[in-house]
Design a protein around this nucleic acid. Structure first.
Lengths: 219, 219
DNA sequence: ACCTGAACACCGTTCAAGT
DNA sequence: ACCTGAACACCGTTCAAGT
């Protein structure tokens, strides 16, 4: 039989390329994710990747989609406050799974269909809670900003490192020029990362939205 | 007279290099800020810059300091709510003046002495308002996250572009799969940027903190 | 002492050529 | 048709040499 002994050329799919890119991003960070490195890891020539994606930007869009697709299922049990709480905590968990990706997403509008499922779920909860369209849109934007901001500025891998750095930085300040920071040095360091700080902020936001709903309901 | 006709070599200061870098960053964005470009604009060899800063990272730290130093004076008139509101609005204005810098700051802890003046002012207001050290630290972190998150994900130059992109993205979705987003398409687009959306979120956060203070005060 | 060109180990992408 | 090496125009930084 004359079957070909040489395997047919790699013959990747765009999905395989994107998921290899996500894996490389998670493993070695954003700086390591270059077209040359990725092609090397896939065992193909660099320019082969341009057969699947027109540019690195297009590849990054696909990587974002691949990560967002891992989303956990959402159950709409409980009060709107409980639902919003669970949705945002789940979103933070998803984003934290791929810390390198948050920087990528800050560069492009979070408007791909997969990402907008998050908006759809959030807007549905807020509208059912009684917010009008304008308030629901602004409330969603507030929650979105908080979750994405938290993951951008309080990463939870290296949380201990962040606390140590904060402790060292505040300890080095002249106490007379920075009395309030100096006095709360330990508490500020503790609040630099972790889910307690995230939950505290999320609960204050939900309380503030609840107050808004009461005022709007009376009007 | 035998005065030297050739000007003494450029003889820059680190501050001059940092402020030229900030100017280049504002003018052409983060990608344009390379050691080679910057040296070229200053009319010196690339390696000359390494006499002022040991690395590009160290230069970027100095650029952040230069931008933060432009901070507006802060007056402590009014209630704590009014003070927090003014402080955060001022911080957003400062950050918006140098949009390219927000990405830089997401990569490094916001812990330089100049940046911690913002924390000092915020913590002083919150402590005077009656928050204990733990709550004040978490409340400050919430406010910080919101302001930095907002500037990262809702830039206000190209606000109209962001709204148009959002409008196009939501209009392209199947209405039956995305009913809530589709229904509030106009409101979501409007809420993608601008100071109304920022102020709405900030006011909800302040209301939520106020509620917390009432509960803590009763305990 | 102060400055810097050449070199090294990288980038993303175009273009022309290989099978 | 599918894949890719060479080349171009860039990076940050080390090192040795220039004045």
């Amino acid at each position: 039989m004359a079957t070909t002994q040489t395997r047919p050329r790699a013959s990747l799919s765009p999905e395989q390329v994107a998921s290899a890119a996500l894996e490389l991003l998670d493993r070695e960070g954003l700086d390591a994710l270059s077209m040359r490195r990725l092609a090397g890891e896939l065992g193909v020539g660099t320019m082969t990747l341009y057969g699947y994606f027109r540019s690195k930007d297009e590849l990054l869009d696909a990587v974002v989609d691949a990560a967002v697709a891992e989303r956990e299922p959402f159950s709409s049990d409980g009060t709107w406050q409980e639902q919003i709480r669970r949705l945002m905590q789940g979103s933070r968990r998803n984003l934290s799974r791929h810390p390198g990706l948050v920087k990528v997403r800050a560069d492009r509008p979070v408007l791909r269909p997969e990402a907008l499922r998050f908006a759809e779920t959030g807007m549905t909860i807020l509208r059912r809670a009684g917010f009008d369209r304008t308030d629901a849109a602004r409330a969603f934007r507030l929650l979105f900003t908080y979750v994405f901001g938290y993951v951008s500025f309080s990463p939870d891998e290296r949380a201990d490192q962040a606390r140590r750095d904060a402790r060292a930085a505040t300890a080095a300040l002249p106490p007379d020029e920075y009395p309030s920071v100096h006095e709360a040095s330990a508490e500020l360091a503790e609040a630099m990362a972790g889910h307690e700080t995230f939950d505290f902020g999320l609960d204050r936001i939900i309380d503030g939205l609840e107050a808004r709903l009461r005022v709007a309901g009376r009007a």
